[in-house]
């Protein structure tokens, strides 16, 4: 958003925009100070976004840069009001690998079925059970570990930290009471990836050299083994605007 463009907007729109970008307007501020604050906040935001992007992606995003006005919405008249439902009221769970140790869970529970269970068993907790498997094929016998995350009824997506690289995981959506667990759905299996060169004990000096010439560092893997934690790092997405 350029300063010139902001100056064309009415006071009300300026104030509303300031609120949207998180500027707290002080009582003694004039219009010019509000505009300057908006510009500052948007510049900071842009710098932060740019710093999060690596070279490939930031170059790639340059081709979309026909304007420097990032939030420009020219309000093209789309034929219909474009409102997507928050959910599809179905039993579902999907598990995506975001990076080598973080997964993303999307889930939903059908309202009628949920209510049915509430009528039968009373108050229910919703649990996401993250199971670790020996291999990529699901069977109860191949589960080697699991941990639970209790979630709110209104939640439907969450990022989870997966404790081990190169391991298999799937997620179950479970309704639980003190005495009973009902598995509503089970996700696909994902495999966390390796985030290092796979050195073998007998690797010779040539391998180390070619790895380094390829732009990768030699890392002593024996020091890495202690870093895995069987716990969830909090990363709650509730309340984020879509």
């Amino acid at each position: 958003m350029t300063k010139e463009r902001l100056e064309l907007l009415s006071d009300d729109v300026i104030k509303s925009l300031a609120k949207k970008v998180g500027v707290r307007i002080k009582l003694d501020w004039d219009r010019c100070q509000i505009i300057n604050s908006i510009i500052d906040v948007m510049d900071e935001d842009r710098e932060e976004k740019e710093s999060l992007l690596n070279l490939a992606v930031s170059i790639e995003s340059k081709k979309y840069a026909v304007t420097i006005d990032e939030e420009l919405d020219l309000s093209y008249d789309f034929d219909e009001e474009m409102v997507l439902p928050d959910r599809y009221n179905e039993n579902m769970v999907k598990f995506l690998l975001r990076d080598n140790t973080w997964g993303f869970i999307l889930w939903d529970i059908n309202d009628a079925q949920y209510q049915n269970y509430v009528n039968q068993f009373g108050e229910l907790n919703i649990i996401l059970r993250v199971n670790e498997l020996k291999n990529g094929i699901f069977s109860k016998e191949s589960i080697i570990d699991f941990f639970d995350i209790e979630v709110e009824k209104k939640e439907r997506r969450r990022y989870v930290n997966l404790p081990h690289e190169e391991s298999y995981y799937f997620v179950e959506v479970i309704l639980s009471t003190e005495f009973k667990e009902i598995t509503i759905n089970r996700s696909n299996v994902v495999k966390t990836s390796r985030d290092h060169v796979n050195y073998a004990l007998n690797d010779n000096g040539k391998i180390k050299s070619i790895v380094e010439l390829s732009g990768f560092e030699f890392k002593d893997l024996s020091k890495r083994r202690g870093r895995n934690f069987n716990r969830i790092l909090p990363f709650d997405t509730i309340g984020e605007d879509e």
């Binding site: 992007l53 490939a56 992606v57 997507l84 995506l96 975001r98 990076d99 993303f104 997506r157 495999k191």
Partner: peptide, 29 residues
């Protein structure tokens, strides 16, 4: 081969984070 991309940190973060993850429920549907 390993799961990878040329995006930030080398995996899928750029196309799956708080700014855009809402699209996947609808896309999968």
């Amino acid at each position: 081969l390993n799961y990878s991309s040329w995006g930030d940190e080398g995996y899928g973060q750029v196309w799956l984070d708080g700014s855009n993850d809402w699209i996947y429920r609808h896309l999968f549907k």
